[in-house]
Amino acid sequence: MARVVFENVRKEYEDVKRGSFTAVAGSSFVIEDKEFVVFVGPSGCGKTTSLRMIAGLEQQTSGDILIGDRVVNQLHPKDRDIAMVFQDYALYPHMTVRENLSFGLKNLKKSKAEIEEKVKSASSILGLDEMLERKPRELSGGQRQRVAVGRAIVRDPQVFLFDEPLSNLDAKLRIQMRVELAELHKRLGATIVYVTHDQVEAMTLGERIVVMNHGVIQQIAPPTELYNNPSNMFVAGFIGSPAMNFIDAQIQGDKAIVEGAAFTLPERMARSMKAYEGRSVILGIRPEHIFGEDFALHVSPEHKLSATVQVVEHLGSENLVYFRVGERMVTAKVHPETNASIGQLKTFIIDLSKAHFFNPDTEVRIIL
């Protein structure tokens, strides 16, 4: 296995209608040996382009890419010692599972004994032993995806590249496959670079996550760091489900004023926010840190907001309650027995100790 390095890598495209545009804007990062790193972001953010540049399927405009100790800028994909798993399974329909697994090794002129050993090992790891003589049409979506992963495993590459491999699976199967991929990484001790648009998938799989938007890396951090200390409003709003709420506020002394309600800031926050005295800021609070008054047992009862309930979503283990604060819609993830109905004037308690503040001009998080 090997580490992957981007050194100020840039990718620009020429478009007849739009002219040139930047897909990846000067990215620099290191993916360590045996690390599982996930690239995440909305469509068009540059995550797949980054993956394809590692694979050699796209040529960077400038900058260097290293796999292991080699600069691979000019190397053909087959010479980069990588294996890629795509969104579609790309299996040969006329071949059995065994033949699909061994096809690439035959092209590499490996011996029959080596091919048999590698196919047997991959089949055992992925639970495909009883399916080796089946054709792809006889397999479920999850089984086909396992075969696609198996074709990568038999290559024994330095780096595994996954391009949204679970997108075509239903919700239940995606959860199952996420668990299997996490276990596979532990077993193989492999360097894995994984691309997804699904932030839940990113949070559950990645040891570190690269969050991208408009070709720019917004933050690289472990999942808990992204959740607890997002660098800006984009990361804060993208990571977490439901998304973080953003509420307009103004700082007055040791208080944050929200729609006429005065929230006394904890001492640490108050000191950090002195520079914003008399200024507008954005208060960020996650839905799980807003409580119905009747179930707010472990937070300060003084940070209250009263609002009219707009929508209630009953999800069984929890309810999502939507209400407006000024011009912004706010979501609260509350106890399922919380008494809330559409049109009701309801009091909510905010756990201000979990709040973030953002500069409204730069959208950067204010370090508290």
Results as ranks from 00 to 15, higher is better:
residue 148 A to T: 06
residue 121 S to D: 15
residue 120 K to A: 14
residue 144 R to F: 07
residue 164 E to T: 02
residue 236 A to Q: 08
residue 215 G to N: 00
residue 178 R to D: 13
residue 163 D to G: 02
residue 206 G to Y: 05
residue 210 V to E: 00
residue 195 V to E: 05
residue 213 N to L: 08
residue 134 R to Y: 12
residue 146 R to W: 08
residue 222 P to T: 11
residue 137 R to M: 10
residue 196 T to V: 11
residue 115 I to A: 07
residue 147 V to C: 02
residue 137 R to C: 07
residue 219 Q to A: 05
residue 171 A to E: 07
residue 257 I to N: 02
residue 189 G to K: 10
residue 160 F to R: 00
residue 231 S to N: 13
residue 190 A to L: 09
residue 134 R to V: 05
residue 198 D to Y: 09
residue 180 E to D: 11
residue 217 I to P: 00
residue 158 Q to L: 09
residue 199 Q to E: 11
residue 171 A to S: 11
residue 194 Y to Q: 08
residue 200 V to M: 09
residue 221 A to W: 11
residue 209 I to G: 01
residue 117 E to I: 09
residue 111 S to T: 15
residue 148 A to L: 05
residue 150 G to V: 01
residue 220 I to A: 00
residue 117 E to H: 13
residue 110 K to D: 13
residue 171 A to T: 10
residue 249 A to F: 12
residue 138 E to G: 03
residue 123 S to C: 10
residue 241 S to T: 15
residue 209 I to W: 06
residue 228 N to I: 13
residue 145 Q to V: 04
residue 133 E to L: 08
residue 256 A to D: 07
residue 207 E to L: 06
residue 224 T to N: 15
residue 181 L to C: 10
residue 257 I to W: 07
residue 159 V to Q: 01
residue 225 E to C: 02
residue 125 I to P: 06
residue 134 R to W: 10
residue 224 T to M: 15
residue 232 N to E: 12
residue 212 M to I: 05
residue 201 E to S: 07
residue 134 R to T: 05
residue 124 S to I: 09
residue 146 R to P: 00
residue 220 I to Q: 00
residue 123 S to F: 11
residue 130 E to G: 03
residue 117 E to W: 12
residue 111 S to V: 12
residue 178 R to L: 12
residue 231 S to G: 15
residue 166 L to P: 00
residue 146 R to H: 06
residue 167 S to H: 04
residue 143 Q to E: 08
residue 138 E to K: 10
residue 250 Q to P: 00
residue 200 V to K: 08
residue 147 V to M: 03
residue 187 R to P: 00
residue 173 L to K: 03
residue 143 Q to H: 06
residue 225 E to D: 14
residue 202 A to H: 08
residue 151 R to D: 01
residue 165 P to S: 06
residue 198 D to K: 09
residue 219 Q to D: 03
residue 187 R to H: 10
residue 255 K to H: 15
residue 228 N to W: 14
residue 127 G to L: 09
residue 110 K to A: 13
residue 159 V to C: 01
residue 182 A to S: 13
residue 158 Q to E: 10
residue 121 S to M: 15
residue 225 E to N: 11
residue 161 L to F: 02
residue 203 M to H: 11
residue 239 I to D: 02
residue 139 L to M: 09
residue 252 Q to F: 12
residue 197 H to N: 09
residue 201 E to R: 07
residue 176 Q to P: 02
residue 193 V to I: 13
residue 122 A to I: 11
residue 179 V to T: 14
residue 241 S to H: 14
residue 151 R to A: 00
residue 205 L to T: 07
residue 205 L to N: 05
residue 252 Q to N: 14
residue 121 S to H: 14
residue 166 L to S: 01
residue 244 M to Y: 15
residue 140 S to A: 02
residue 193 V to A: 00
residue 219 Q to G: 03
residue 167 S to Q: 04
residue 193 V to R: 01
residue 188 L to D: 10
residue 176 Q to G: 02
residue 137 R to N: 12
residue 228 N to M: 14
residue 112 K to N: 14
residue 233 M to Q: 14
residue 154 V to M: 02
residue 213 N to H: 12
residue 152 A to C: 04
residue 129 D to I: 08
residue 141 G to H: 03
residue 140 S to D: 02
residue 196 T to Y: 09
residue 115 I to R: 08
residue 227 Y to P: 05
residue 202 A to I: 07
residue 153 I to F: 03
